[in-house]
Amino acid sequence: MTLWNILLDTLTQGSIYFLIAVGLTMVYGILKILHIAHAAVYTVGAGVGLAVFRLTGNFWAALAAAMVVSGAVGVLIYRGVYFYMLDQPRIVPLITSVGLFLLMQDLLQKPYLMGPYQHAFPAQDVFPSLTLPWGTVPSAQVMILVFTALTLGVLYGVFTRTRLGLAWQAAAMDRDMAGAVGVNLNRAIALNFLLGSALAGAAGVLVGVFYNSVYATMGDVPSYKAFVVIVLGGMGSVSGTVAASFLLALAETVLLSSVGYVLPRDAIAFLVLILVLMFRPQGLLGR
């Protein structure tokens, strides 16, 4: 594998991890809930995106619809389920979330939704491929990298420059106190779910296009992989999630290209997780 390929794979895979995991991180930051059902929201995004793409042939409409519907599903999960468990021991929403994930995924496998098949998502030529002196970036990867770069910029701006971002940070440190300085927690948390879930929905579409495949159980691997990322990132830290996404992707890509014949990708991810937890239980960037 050339250096260029390692770099490109790392950036692509890291971007995907980040887009999926950042919503989990945001939810964990404020509610301290391990929101496993987030992976089903990602699948919903892929499914909605594909349906709209088939109807309209327009990738942008598909992406927008996926983000809107996923965002709405995320808010619904918060207001309809977690909202009633905020004062319960954390094991209650955790178990609920596992149940919710399995329930949603089972539903998605019904023939009237996604069925038990893989569906092609033929939107690979929306972006031009990019030829640089060192090599070529295929169009699906251009799309993922551009979207991730934009998302990073927007998130950074929202978290550091806006009132809402400051409120999210405060709520992640001390939720009750944030309420007492005047943050409407119901609204702030709903918006937190809205944004995180919309990004997961977008990730579903991008991954679906990248692998040209969308299916009801595509959330399986992300459901636990995203946890590797948020644990490595230090639980609830958005910047830690960025770092962990790309570091994990780098470790996977490098190890895969050297010892890939013994260790498959997901085994590598969990090996990294276990090693890090043995020596830095607070995560790579956690204090």
Partner: peptide, 16 residues
Amino acid sequence: FRDLSVEENLRLGAYL
């Protein structure tokens, strides 16, 4: 708010 600056803490006090 532990991980925020003094000034950010004060700004949050005036959130409304």
